[in-house]
Every structure is written in C-alpha cells, then in structure tokens.
Simulated scan of single mutants.
Amino acid sequence: MKDDNQENPKSSSKIVSGSIDIYAVQCVKCNKWRVIDMEEEYEEIRSKFTEEPYVCSKKPGISCHNPPDIDYDASRTWVIDKPDIPKTPEGFKRSLVLRKDFSKLDAYYISPSGRKMRTLAEVAAFLKANPELKGVSVDDFSFHCPKVVEDTIPEYAEKKMPTSGSASKKMKITKDGEKH
C-alpha cells in the first residue's frame, strides 16, 4: 500500500532517510493503484481496510475505468502495509525508516513533546506519565511494519550476507551487478 522511491537516495524528492514519499492503495475491484494525497487519509483507509475495502470510487471523480495513478514496477521500492493498523493518535507521529540494506522498516512514534518511542512498553510508560492525554490508549499504537517487496529493492542496496558465525557481512551490489 505504500511505496518508497529509490532512484537516487540523495535527491530531496526521493528517499530521505528511508522515508515514505508516496502513499497508495490498491482497489479491491480492479487492482489499480490509487495515490492517496495525505498520510492522515492513508492511515484512515488502512485502519478500516477489512471492514471498508478500498475501491476507486472512494476517490472523487475516479472509477475503475480510469487508468491507475501509479504503476507497480521496480522504479521505486514498494512496501506493503498490514490492514487495520490503528490510525495514529492526534498529536503523535508514526515514523517508518527503511534500513540501509532494504531488509525492513523500523517503526517508532514521536510524542507531542518530541519523545521518540520504539516499543509499546515505552508508549505505556509515556501515557502513564502524561495522564492529560485522555482518550489515548496503548491499543492506539502499532509497531507492525510494512513488508519490503523484494523484487523492487534496488540493485545498489547493501545486502547482508549470512556467515558461519553470528555476525553478518555486508555486500554492496552496484548498478552494473558487480558485488563488492
């Protein structure tokens, strides 16, 4: 449901610290991808996806007869979110960061006061210490991360190579396919 542009990781319109640059949802009727303009709107759709599956007609002026907003291809790294992850509580920010080796994303929340939280235990402690945040529960947070779609990982990504010990070696694969 989300994708991460991969063309030039240094470019401001591309991956910036592994950030998500386009939110998209696939129509359950025609399987076309529709771009969702705002993260908040995307989270709303995702939070109710099982009970209210997305269809093209939910986007004003669009139907399944229109061409897709974006095509699924390897021109960008795609990540697929789980459905029904709760919408981020107001005042908090859910952040997803793509690892350098493109193996996965890491999720964390930033509180209204700027505190970064990486686990539900940290969220629970923060909520306990801030009782003024009425109506916000640990159940409103999810650290489930979207899955990176392997066939869209760029060739230049650092790949972790398993070794005989517990440590792993990194291998860089260049655009020409050469291993370093």
Score class of each variant (00 low, 15 high):
residue 1 M to L: 10
residue 3 D to Y: 11
residue 3 D to T: 12
residue 4 D to Y: 06
residue 4 D to H: 07
residue 4 D to R: 06
residue 5 N to I: 07
residue 7 E to T: 10
residue 8 N to H: 11
residue 9 P to T: 12
residue 10 K to Y: 15
residue 12 S to K: 12
residue 19 S to Y: 06
residue 20 I to Y: 03
residue 20 I to S: 03
residue 20 I to W: 02
residue 20 I to V: 15
residue 21 D to K: 15
residue 25 V to L: 04
residue 26 Q to G: 00
residue 26 Q to N: 03
residue 28 V to T: 13
residue 29 K to P: 00
residue 30 C to T: 02
residue 30 C to K: 01
residue 30 C to E: 02
residue 30 C to S: 03
residue 31 N to E: 08
residue 31 N to F: 04
residue 32 K to G: 02
residue 34 R to E: 05
residue 34 R to D: 04
residue 35 V to L: 13
residue 35 V to K: 15
residue 36 I to R: 03
residue 36 I to D: 01
residue 38 M to C: 06
residue 39 E to V: 11
residue 39 E to I: 09
residue 39 E to Y: 01
residue 41 E to V: 13
residue 43 E to I: 03
residue 47 S to K: 08
residue 47 S to F: 08
residue 51 E to P: 00
residue 52 E to V: 11
residue 52 E to F: 11
residue 56 C to A: 10
residue 57 S to Y: 00
residue 58 K to I: 00
residue 59 K to G: 00
residue 59 K to Q: 08
residue 59 K to C: 00
residue 62 I to G: 00
residue 63 S to Y: 11
residue 67 P to G: 10
residue 67 P to E: 12
residue 68 P to D: 09
residue 69 D to C: 05
residue 69 D to Q: 03
residue 70 I to M: 09
residue 70 I to W: 05
residue 71 D to N: 10
residue 72 Y to Q: 03
residue 72 Y to V: 00
residue 74 A to C: 12
residue 74 A to W: 04
residue 75 S to W: 01
residue 76 R to H: 14
residue 77 T to D: 04
residue 77 T to P: 01
residue 80 I to N: 09
residue 81 D to Q: 05
residue 81 D to E: 12
residue 81 D to I: 01
residue 82 K to W: 05
residue 83 P to W: 07
residue 85 I to P: 01
residue 86 P to C: 07
residue 88 T to F: 00
residue 89 P to R: 07
residue 90 E to D: 12
residue 91 G to W: 06
residue 91 G to N: 03
residue 91 G to K: 05
residue 94 R to E: 12
residue 98 L to E: 09
residue 101 D to T: 15
residue 102 F to Y: 15
residue 104 K to C: 13
residue 104 K to T: 12
residue 105 L to D: 05
residue 105 L to S: 04
residue 108 Y to L: 15
residue 109 Y to L: 06
residue 109 Y to P: 06
residue 109 Y to G: 03
residue 109 Y to I: 08
residue 109 Y to R: 07
residue 111 S to G: 10
residue 113 S to R: 14
residue 114 G to R: 06
residue 115 R to N: 09
residue 118 R to K: 15
residue 118 R to F: 13
residue 118 R to Y: 15
residue 120 L to M: 03
residue 120 L to C: 01
residue 121 A to R: 12
residue 122 E to T: 02
residue 122 E to M: 07
residue 122 E to A: 09
residue 125 A to G: 07
residue 126 F to K: 02
residue 128 K to G: 04
residue 128 K to I: 08
residue 129 A to Y: 09
residue 130 N to F: 08
residue 132 E to C: 04
residue 133 L to C: 02
residue 135 G to M: 04
residue 135 G to N: 08
residue 135 G to W: 05
residue 136 V to T: 13
residue 137 S to M: 03
residue 137 S to Q: 11
residue 139 D to V: 03
residue 139 D to Q: 13
residue 140 D to H: 14
residue 141 F to V: 02
residue 142 S to K: 05
residue 147 K to E: 14
residue 150 E to W: 05
residue 152 T to F: 01
residue 155 E to K: 13
residue 155 E to Y: 08
residue 156 Y to V: 06
residue 157 A to T: 08
residue 158 E to N: 12
residue 161 M to I: 14
residue 163 T to N: 06
residue 164 S to Q: 08
residue 165 G to V: 01
residue 165 G to L: 02
residue 166 S to W: 11
residue 168 S to A: 15
residue 170 K to L: 14
residue 171 M to C: 14
residue 172 K to V: 15
residue 175 K to F: 04
residue 177 G to W: 04
residue 177 G to S: 04
residue 177 G to C: 07
residue 178 E to L: 11
residue 179 K to N: 07
